[in-house]
């Protein structure tokens, strides 16, 4: 594996997400073009904020004349899940030079987190993993910029984009990443709990339903893991006593 091939592999493995995100980039651009923001501000938002959900929510808040404080607080809450992603991936990037850690942090998204979680599960100690990470990041970033621009310029020409359901590419990829991890009972129970709470809480604003789902899943998973290891220890003690 060279740097280049690792980078290319990261970009390649992110391809389904790139396809899935494309229509949302166009929709975002289209909404900007139809709203109070200038076109260049829409592109600036994609370039500098680079977090889809919060960009959409901000458009809604601007149209509703929300104040700066409300918009910023909402941004913080909606994007809080990225801190969880960073915490999870931290052991794999902590050794890198600071400029790498800034860059990989800036480019972090749901999609790249999914790809990297799958990658590090398969290759826990890959020395060039950060090049793979960067490949995933830059393909998502370039894609988001291009489709934002397309939406800004030609958005009105694609009225039916959302009904295409291209975001299913993301669903398929996430399934391919998650299913192999469900062989362990604590992981399986954690996923069931998280999925249930996420479904029930899907209308809770600011992605708080998602955060509640993660909290519920992690709690269930840890409880099962402790109960099992507690059971094992008790078994060992009995053996020793006998």
């Amino acid at each position: 594996m060279t740097r280049r091939s690792s980078f290319a592999a990261g970009a390649r493995d992110t391809l389904p997400m790139v396809i899935g995100a494309a229509p949302f980039g166009v929709i975002f651009g289209t909404l900007v073009a139809a709203g109070p923001l200038a076109a260049w501000q829409g592109q600036l938002m994609s370039l500098s904020v680079y977090a889809g959900s919060s960009q959409f929510i901000a458009l809604g808040l601007v149209a509703g004349h929300a104040g700066l404080a409300v918009i910023w607080l909402t941004t913080l809450i909606v994007n809080l899940r990225h801190a969880l992603y960073a915490a999870t991936l931290l052991p794999h990037v902590a050794h890198l030079p600071a400029r790498w850690r800034w860059a990989l942090g800036f480019f972090l998204t749901d999609e790249t987190f999914a790809v990297m979680a799958g990658y590090y599960a398969r290759h826990p100690r890959a020395p060039l993993g950060h090049w793979y990470f960067l490949g995933s990041c830059l393909s998502m970033y370039a894609n988001w910029q291009v489709w934002t621009l397309v939406g800004l310029l030609f958005g009105a020409a694609f009225p039916q984009l959302q009904s295409l359901g291209l975001d299913f590419a993301m669903v398929a990829t996430f399934i391919a990443i998650v299913v192999p991890q469900l062989a362990s009972l604590p992981n399986f129970a954690a996923a069931v709990a998280a999925g249930t709470v996420a479904y029930l809480g899907q209308d809770v604003p600011y992605k708080l339903g998602l955060m509640a789902a993660v909290l519920a899943g992690v709690t269930v998973g840890m409880a099962l893991q402790r109960w099992r290891s507690g059971g094992l220890e008790a078994g060992r003690r009995e053996e020793e006593a006998a």
Partner: peptide, 8 residues
């Protein structure tokens, strides 16, 4: 447990 829960 974060990857499996958040992706699900």
């Amino acid at each position: 447990f974060v990857p499996v829960t958040v992706l699900t």
